[in-house]
């Protein structure tokens, strides 16, 4: 599972790194959590960083689903993900992610990142969902009919795969990290070919270190969360 990540790279550097302009000002984030609107870059519109809600809801669903991860091994054939895998892939800019390891005395959070803390992309899928019907309010009927606005929700999920050696000691899954030269392939490549990108990232340049349990609560989101702590 990948259920929390960081994205506190300087916004200017992030724009340059991904060659994409954000739809709204980027904020430094130390605790990105499911349910939040976070920047993604879609194959449909690769020059923009759009803000989608983390937790995928397929277009055909009757109600919100909130699927935060998809398994690389089955993503091309599970009903919830197959359509998005075929035609709605995205990059999720990240500069580290948290994993919780059970060290015998309860689960402790660790941060995994590049040694130089550089940003990277994890492989994602996105969907646009429209609520089939919308509950109106009585106030809309004071004069004339209801508003015609429909309620549209844009969501994304992060693909996970087998962990590399560094992460396997923490958790049995890891997010699919894409090498920079494979990002365009992930967005635009043939679905049958891009499956080869969904491999564990080599651990040579990665580091992991324990962080404060304050990260457990998504309401905490400040620079101290990424400080290493001694165990």
């Amino acid at each position: 599972m990948c259920g929390r990540y960081t994205l506190y790279t300087d916004p200017k550097r992030l724009r340059e790194r991904f060659d994409a302009e954000p739809d709204r000002p980027l904020e430094r984030r130390y605790n990105c959590a499911p349910g939040q609107e976070l920047p993604v870059i879609t194959g449909e519109d690769p020059d923009r960083m759009q803000f989608f809600k983390w937790g995928l809801t397929p277009a055909w669903a009757d109600e919100e689903q909130g699927l935060i991860n998809a398994r690389a091994e089955t993503v091309d054939r599970k009903r919830s993900f197959a359509d998005a895998y075929e035609s709605r892939r995205c990059l999720v800019p990240v500069d580290g992610f948290y994993e919780w390891a059970d060290r015998g005395d309860g689960k402790r959070p660790y941060r995994v990142a590049f040694e130089d803390d550089r940003p990277f992309a994890v492989a994602g899928l996105w969907e646009r969902w429209e609520e089939p019907t919308r509950q109106t309010g009585l106030a809309e009927f004071g004069s004339g009919g209801a508003n015609e606005d429909s309620s549209t929700l844009e969501t994304f999920t992060i693909i996970t795969t087998e962990p590399n050696d560094l992460i396997s000691e923490l958790h049995h899954r890891m997010a699919v990290m894409l090498p920079p030269d494979c990002e365009a392939d992930w967005l635009h490549g043939d679905p049958e070919a891009v499956v080869d990108l969904l491999e564990p990232y080599p651990d040579d340049e990665l580091t992991r270190y324990p962080v404060s349990e304050r990260v457990n609560s998504p309401t905490n989101d400040d620079p101290s969360l990424v400080d290493p702590i001694s165990t």
Binding site: E130, P132, T133, R134, Q135, T136, A146
Partner: peptide, 10 residues
């Protein structure tokens, strides 16, 4: 009683 409807999304 008065109850507002659910309307079809466009």
């Amino acid at each position: 009683y008065m109850l507002a409807p659910r309307i079809q999304s466009e």
